[in-house]
Design a protein around this nucleic acid. Structure first.
Lengths: 332, 332
DNA sequence: GTGAAAGCGCTAACAC
DNA sequence: GTGTTAGCGCTTTCAC
């Protein structure tokens, strides 16, 4: 039923290896054009496609890479995947997209699956509590590992300059006159959360200021909402800064529910800038945040993985001032 | 460096096929427990994992399935993928997730890639203008094709009862007293768009009513916004119904920009119910819409594909009344 | 310029 | 109960 390379060879009156040569472009220098033509015709007539499994077995290469993200339904990671895929696919590699759903056990199972599939490289956005042994298993087999967005262990990473950007955001808010700041951070295990907190603190330190309060969320809308409500009910602050936009949206919701108004009564800032979310267009005023080039991060990580580049890379980010933070009239 | 089955066999003092038997559970009845034990130990000690390419070649089965969606950054399709993956992965299959990005050419390339990978089945959410020849190429090779969410050609499909649900939505609005309705439909090539329009029309027909106007959007926020603004500026309507929630959000935005208020001045309804979008929580009042069990659709499609079930399936949906449509005081 | 032959790692039919 | 053998479809020396 399905044609093999031998059948193509017979049909064209040549040996299998000659067909193979055509298929793989090893005919560059020395091959009679008419032979090549005959073979190409046979391939077309028999509707021949090589069996990948046989190629992989023989070549001892799979041309497959894995990409593991914590949550495929999160636009941030979906854009990352798009970036990766745009490079990987166009280079003729197959990518195995895996969604760990924030579950370290599931994540480990996917990593083992990638090992079984003989992925040549793996791009990993680690969940909060990665099973490093699964990662080590891959590395031990010589699989190239590249972390994306979040650091963990000693593996090379492509990430944003979270600390620097967060510091710039902090300086921005201080410049606008905000002084009583609450910070809603992300999970302690996630490097982006820690870097953003540290960066903002850098700004405060330089100005001799401190946070009124710091709370920890889970990078989700709900956790931002909960944390903000708690802050608003127990502290006197003039701005709330969240470690990502999703939580910042939760903050805005809480501010509204508490009967306050942004930016009149309180300033709000986020981090991420995933404004591609159409719903976010509803926001008035627009959120003060930091743009993270997540698609570019995916592209760059894929490029480095395929090119065999070692070492880490930090991508530049930039401040996106929005109407949720404005110049404060000092009321004292 | 990497252990093969032969090395495991030698290490355990058995023949390769015996190792294979253990690996594949063909040891059920008759195998000396100690032999099995010895083999398992060797496997562990040598850190052996079978080479998938060799297995696939020998077994003539890939245990791989493809899933092609038009837009991985759209939460709707991300949830669909999750549903599919939850079934496929747990059954020991590998899924190849492909994002056609609404581009029929890219879509065709992915379908050809799935052919080259010898996917045993393909779940396809066709883009607006699918290249059916690429689909036929797969089918001709005996690859099982199952459409999801959208119909096209004569292939079996797992979809929602869009027409029935839309009719119910129409009846709901009529019952509330809305009479001057504008409808913002989706792309004509997409079956969901057509079904929803037809269903709503069913309701109007039964009541002897007609649309004030029908416009066509692209299922995007922006197109919903544009269409609604046009309607609001040129027609006198008491409600605008969009063929999906994304466009409905655009409608709400347009209504706000035109200085009108929902539901006081105008009713708004959508279709999809992807309220999992945290940002949507901002919406006050909540959107009147129809719940489409998209995750379940993914699961069911995957199950049917793997179980070899033929024929189509329609999943039930249900109306989600929201504050954007309320009882109208007839003002005449 | 092209062909013959070997073998990638695995499994299954058939021996014993 | 376990081993021997052949072969899945392909690529790549090495001949000539």
């Amino acid at each position: 039923m399905r044609a093999t390379i031998r059948e193509v060879a017979e049909h064209a009156g040549v040996a299998p290896c000659t067909v193979s040569r055509v298929l793989n472009g090893h005919d560059a220098e020395h091959m009679r054009p008419e032979t090549k033509e005959r073979i190409l015709t046979s391939i077309r007539e028999l509707d021949y496609t090589p069996v990948k499994a046989a190629q992989r077995l023989r070549r001892q290469r799979t041309h497959a890479v894995g990409i593991v993200v914590p949550d495929i339904t999160n636009l941030y990671f979906a854009l990352l995947i798009r970036g990766v895929e745009s490079i990987v696919f166009d280079r003729g590699f197959t990518s195995l997209i895996c969604d760990s759903s924030h579950d370290p056990r599931r994540e480990a199972r996917y990593l083992d699956m990638l090992l079984a599939e003989d992925a040549e490289g793996v791009l990993l956005v680690p969940s909060g509590r990665v099973d490093m042994s699964a990662v080590e298993r891959l590395a031990a087999r010589g699989v190239r590992i590249m972390l994306v967005d979040r650091r963990v262990g000693g593996f090379p990473v492509v990430e944003a300059n979270n600390r620097g950007a967060s510091r710039a955001l902090g300086e921005h808010l201080l410049r606008l006159g905000y002084r009583r700041l609450a910070y809603i951070s992300g999970p302690a295990e996630v490097s982006t959360a820690e870097d953003r907190l540290r960066g903002f603190r850098d700004a405060l330190d330089a100005a001799g200021a401190t946070f009124v309060t710091i709370r920890r969320g889970a990078f989700t809308f709900e956790s931002g909402f909960d944390a903000a409500r708690h802050v608003l009910r127990h502290e006197k602050v003039d701005a709330i800064v969240a470690a990502n936009d999703l939580m910042a949206f939760g903050v805005l919701r809480a501010v509204e529910e508490e009967g306050l108004s942004v930016p009149r009564d309180i300033g709000v800032a986020g981090f991420d800038h995933v404004p591609h979310v159409p719903y976010a267009t509803f926001l008035r005023p627009e959120l003060t945040t930091v743009d993270v080039p997540v698609h570019e991060m995916g592209c760059e990580a894929a490029r480095r993985l395929l090119d065999g580049a070692d070492g880490s890379l930090q991508l530049a980010t930039h401040l996106v001032p929005g109407g949720t933070c404005v110049v404060q009239r000092r009321t004292e």
